[in-house]
Amino acid sequence: MTELDTAAPRENSDERLLREGLHTLVRDVEPSPTALSRVLAKRRGRSGSRLVLGLTGVAAAATAALLLVLVLVPDRSPRPVPVGIAPDSYVVRLADGTLASAALETGEVLREFGRVDAEVTALAKGDEHVYAAVAGEGVLRVGPDGTTRRVRGVGRRAEVSAMSAANGRLAVAGGNRVTLVSGNSTRRITLDTGLVVRDLALDRSGRLALVVRDRDGGAPTLRLVPAGRAGSDRIRLFEPACAPLRIAWSSTGLLVLRPRDCAARDAVRLTTIDPRTGGRIGGGVGIRFEGPIGGAGDVRVSTDSADRVLVSTATGKTWLVDGGGVELVAEHCVVGRNCTPVPAAM
């Protein structure tokens, strides 16, 4: 790989102007006269503290290693092959039932994981696996190498309305119950029987946000379940707004997707709120659909670690929100293939 662009220039006039403009913009920027001496001084300070930390670390590591050797029986099973879903991608279910990842920028299929023939009702993307809620099967965990395992703790007959995965954990919503699966442990959060969980978002710390609706009707509301707790607190919004459809966590707060006009569902707005206060952090962006969407399950919002947001619909339209910009990634879920009507997840 060449570092510098040595290819023959094929730039248009806009690109040439931009290149010249960027160089001119910073031509006066020079390092401060003391920059090098400050770097070297900081480096000396860091080396000293690193030496002390290093020695402490070595002593601690030696003790820990000794304890491990004494306590643990050596595990001779083959080391697991590291697997991971490609970064900068989202997951979809293709029309033939194959679960696949697609490039975030181009919408092209990157990798096919494996085929699930039964009906899939929801998808979630973990760090290393794709999760698929399958009718009559519960939730399946599919690795990039195609290995499929049923997630323990979620019943085969469970009705799954939404899923969210983060940091090795999976949260599954069905009825008034949320099941949290982490490794071999399972925890259940049960809400009042009169409530239904429509969507949920799990963050890396284990904090959970819920979109909850009364079975008897009434507008959906937001709830927050702090990590490790069983009870939920209602998030009271500062400003009057339409009821939330879908949610996802970003590094700055809770992203809430809701209709722009409460009476119609042909356009949505994505805003960021502070889940502790209910105050609005970011004004967000708007997206207009071709026609009104059906229920909340027909649209999905998901995020990645770079705070990019994927908004996907059951019709396959997929948008990427990066900062204030909104780009249509794919008209029909991915480029050149058809998908089943399960919104894609990032």
Binding site: D5, A7, E15, R19, L22, H23, G323, G324, G325
Partner: peptide, 18 residues
Amino acid sequence: LPPRQREAIVLRYYADFS
């Protein structure tokens, strides 16, 4: 510009990276 576009523009057209 959105953050990623800005980064790509700076790296490609200022730093001249491939």
